[in-house]
Design a protein around this nucleic acid. Structure first.
Lengths: 196, 196
DNA sequence: CCTACCGATCGGTAGG
DNA sequence: CCTACCGATCGGTAGG
């Protein structure tokens, strides 16, 4: 579970993880059996263990892989020279992109992390709390500079991240709204609000 | 599964459902066993079947019970004489209240409904889609009247409901922010946006 | 990559 | 409400 590999290097191991991710997202981690994953790949369940060591390891790869990407993006944005509001918008857009392009993995890291075994569970929760704290601090800076509406930064982080996480829901639907419309409207709503 | 009873009439059946809801929310529907629920109530698993007929029936009671409350609230708000923006704010506040007071059941109806068996699954998804369509229509009316920022109404519904659904996350945390702060700040953010 | 298989646990029933 | 129990399925191992 410790090893984090690139998402798409094409190894059989990654194929197994990608396939598992799709099923974990559709049926949930607990309701997906190793036999389900094997069947989708056209092999028998025991064969999967040549590539991974346990079902929970797959979950760990997915959750920590997603966390790593968000943390890396945040670091990059933090070191840029934009205004705070632009930094926040950039982070929002990155989250939206991730939810559009990698929604299966992101959904799992949003909702199925609770099935991680210790000590990975505590590690994941810490990374998550730390990430949100940094976002809240950034928002606070924006408030102090007068760029951001004075609002509780922790509530703002919760609101922003949850709103974006809901794109999973759009992915499940018939997708009549295109990606650009989704992104621009969600950004506008979060930045400018409902009221005209 | 068809019968919808008041949430708190104190019958043993409701105690079973409440207890199950708490565990479904913490561990997920699939990972919660009937023996888990029984143990929490101090009885043996087979005894539960004197009050319910299946594990899936419990899930149905929770999901449809929550749906019923939101639909009833929407009907009430729709028939009031407020401005559209006030109606929307009222619906937002109702969702927040539900997420604060009945977050276990609401979380399950938000995330565990996928484990409903047919024909309940299709029924639930239809109710959900219908509810969101009505909200989108209300938003469109607000836009037409010039009360609401011109924004794609379906994206707005997704954003609002998902943001509120994230309160579950706050419930899982140490809850250092009080309920009033949470509600007022989230409403402010959704109505007025991040930008000052 | 497979077959054969294990112990554990599952939802639920029978019968009282 | 209980004990006793069922067939199914689970994650995973042995051994090749």
């Amino acid at each position: 579970m410790a090893k984090i590999v690139p998402v798409d290097n094409g190894s059989k191991r990654d194929v197994v993880i990608k396939s598992a991710a799709a099923m974990f997202r559709d049926k949930g981690f607990a309701a997906t059996s190793m036999r389900d994953i094997a069947e989708q790949l056209g092999v028998e369940a025991p064969s999967l263990y040549n590539h991974i060591t346990s079902k929970k390891e797959i979950l760990g790869e997915i959750c920590f892989g997603v966390a790593k990407m968000f943390i890396a993006n945040l670091k990059e944005v933090e070191s840029s020279s934009s205004s705070v509001l632009n930094k926040i918008e950039s982070i929002i857009r990155f989250h939206i992109s991730m939810m559009v392009e990698e929604y299966k993995s992101v959904y799992i890291s949003d909702h199925e992390w609770k099935h991680l075994p210790e000590p990975y569970l505590i590690d994941f929760k810490n990374q998550r709390r730390n990430y949100r704290s940094k976002l809240a601090a950034l928002l606070q800076k924006g408030i102090d500079k007068g760029e951001v509406n004075p609002v509780n930064p922790h509530v703002a982080v919760l609101t922003i991240l949850s709103a974006i996480g809901g794109i999973d829901n759009w992915q499940r639907s018939s997708k009549k709204i295109d990606r650009k419309t989704l992104e621009e409207n969600m950004v506008k709503l979060l930045i400018d609000g409902l009221k005209k």
